[in-house]
Simulated assay, not measured.
Amino acid sequence: MSSKFQRMTEVDEQRIIRELNKWALGHFGSKLTWAILEDRFKFSRQSMQAKPQIKAAYDVAKQSLSNGGVTSKEDLGKTVEELKTEIESLKIQLNSFQEKEIKWKKRWQQIAYHIRQKGIQVSDVDKPVHPKTALPSHTTTEKTLKEFDKEIPLSGRI
């Protein structure tokens, strides 16, 4: 049995999102359903809904259409400013996470080095525990991991 639908690529996903954004602005009329999108893009409702960005763009378009259609240019300008602010905030967060990742990688390399120096293989330490084993509590784990957020000690001070 062959399906009437094709496999969705990333390019397809971006094209659908662009079209849904136009729909939200009232470019294609006021009626929007998954059936219309299936016919227009040749992907199943399920495959489109499974993509979080498409689902979000669809929800925004539906909401926009139900609010009376086209948004005013003033509102769009405000939305653009809000989005620029959000993007800047997300860039700062991303930068912070990238810096933490670099520190964690350095720390992990240091820990792995010392584990090997003790004659233990990292693979002997990094393995699942028995399902019935009681792992440390969330609080204990947080306290332990907090130590890893500190600066890496210089050689000779370990």
Rank of each mutant, 00 (worst) to 15 (best):
Q49M: 12
K105L: 09
E13C: 01
Q14L: 08
L83K: 12
E74N: 09
F41E: 01
F5E: 02
G77R: 08
P136H: 04
H27S: 13
I115D: 08
T71K: 06
S30G: 07
V80D: 03
E142Q: 13
P128K: 10
K150Q: 12
D12T: 00
I111P: 02
I16L: 00
M48H: 00
Q14A: 07
G68P: 00
W104A: 15
K127G: 03
I17K: 00
E151S: 12
M48A: 01
T71V: 12
Q98P: 06
E101H: 10
P153Y: 02
G68N: 02
F28G: 01
S123E: 14
L76T: 03
T139G: 05
Q14M: 08
R45A: 09
Q53D: 12
W34V: 02
F5Q: 00
R7E: 05
G68R: 02
Q117C: 10
L83R: 13
E88Y: 13
V80S: 02
V60T: 12
L94S: 10
R45N: 13
H130G: 00
T133E: 09
K22F: 11
P136A: 03
P131Q: 06
K62Y: 02
G77I: 09
V60K: 15
K150N: 15
S96Q: 08
S3A: 07
L135F: 03
V11K: 05
S96C: 03
R107L: 05
A61V: 01
G29Q: 04
Q6S: 10
Q63G: 09
P128M: 10
Q46G: 06
W104R: 14
L90R: 05
G77N: 12
L65V: 09
E82I: 13
E10M: 05
K100D: 15
R18G: 05
T133K: 10
K106D: 10
E147S: 04
E99N: 12
S72E: 03
R116F: 05
P153S: 08
N21G: 10
K84H: 07
T85A: 15
K146D: 15
K103H: 14
Q49F: 06
D12R: 00
E19S: 07
A57V: 01
R7M: 04
S64Q: 05
W34M: 03
E147M: 08
A112L: 06
I158T: 10
I102Y: 07
A61E: 00
K91N: 11
P128S: 14
L32H: 05
K132V: 11
A50M: 02
A134W: 04
D39F: 04
H114W: 06
I115L: 11
E19T: 09
S30E: 11
F41K: 02
S72A: 02
I92G: 04
K100A: 15
D12W: 00
A24G: 11
Q93N: 06
T33R: 05
I115F: 02
V125Y: 04
T85D: 13
G156V: 07
E10D: 13
S72C: 01
D149Q: 11
I115H: 05
S137D: 04
S66Q: 14
E86L: 04
R45V: 04
T79L: 14
H138A: 15
E19L: 07
T140Y: 08
I102P: 02
Q109T: 09
W104N: 13
S47F: 00
N21S: 08
G26V: 01
G29L: 05
K42H: 11
E10Q: 12
T33K: 05
P128F: 07
M1G: 11
A50Q: 06
T141V: 12
F5L: 01
F148N: 10
K51E: 02
T144V: 14
K146Y: 10
